[in-house]
Design a binder for these strands. Structure first.
Length: 198
DNA sequence: CATATGATCCGCT
DNA sequence: GCGGATCATATGA
């Protein structure tokens, strides 16, 4: 059953408004063999313009250029020599803001995700930003992919969470004072279980 | 050209 | 709880 996609206008707002609103919706990936993978978003972090923790903070570069493009596209980056992470680009064009998709609850294509990850256990498939990209087969080729009109990856409307917990973003060295990490309160699929208040 | 470091994960202790 | 894996990117010489 295919759901309704979130429209461009959903993404074209400030990252700290988009991030909590993404919780409960479903990230859907159509792999090259036509298989559908889906996970319910349970954790997301906002990265704003003029945010020292953001990749966009020091201006536009080839790596982060998608962040400065149209909202509703995917920003994929490679880090730690072995991991990819993915973001939804937000805000007005040219501002450089995005929401990091940190964790999801696997919903469709669980066997394929386990194969992509090289391990099974529902809790080990999408419970972290780099785990999730690996489970979904998201790499460089999906950088700048259009989540609104593209055919490779998109976000469909899902059930909104009852309660949203917030906390400081994970792994940031500066900008730790703002609570821009948003998660479904008490959800077992959230990464790094510690931290987070209602 | 050289170097430092990272929006992480995993296995071991 | 800790450290290693492993390299693209950015920055400075």
């Amino acid at each position: 059953v295919t759901g309704r996609r979130l429209p461009r206008s959903f993404y074209a707002r400030a990252a700290d408004l988009v991030a909590p609103d993404l919780l409960g919706h479903r990230l859907v990936r159509r792999s090259s063999n036509g298989l559908r993978l889906a996970a319910r978003i349970v954790e997301a972090e906002a990265y704003a313009p003029d945010d020292p923790a953001s990749h966009a903070f020091r201006g536009q570069t080839p790596r982060n250029s998608c962040m400065f493009g149209e909202a509703g596209h995917l920003y994929v980056y490679f880090t730690y020599g072995m991991h990819f992470c993915m973001n939804a680009v937000t805000g007005r064009i040219g501002t450089g803001s995005a929401v990091l998709l940190r964790a999801g609850e696997p919903v469709e294509g669980i066997e394929a995700m386990a194969a992509n990850r090289g391990r099974d256990g529902l809790l080990e498939l999408c419970s972290g930003p780099a785990k999730w990209t690996q489970a979904f087969g998201v790499g460089r080729d999906l950088n700048c992919a259009d989540l609104v009109d593209g055919e490779d990856i998109w976000i469909e409307r899902g059930s909104r969470p009852g309660e949203v917990a917030v906390g400081p973003r994970v792994g940031v060295t500066s900008g730790a004072e703002v609570d821009w990490r948003f998660m479904v309160a008490g959800d077992p699929f959230v990464s790094r279980k510690r931290g987070g208040r209602a």
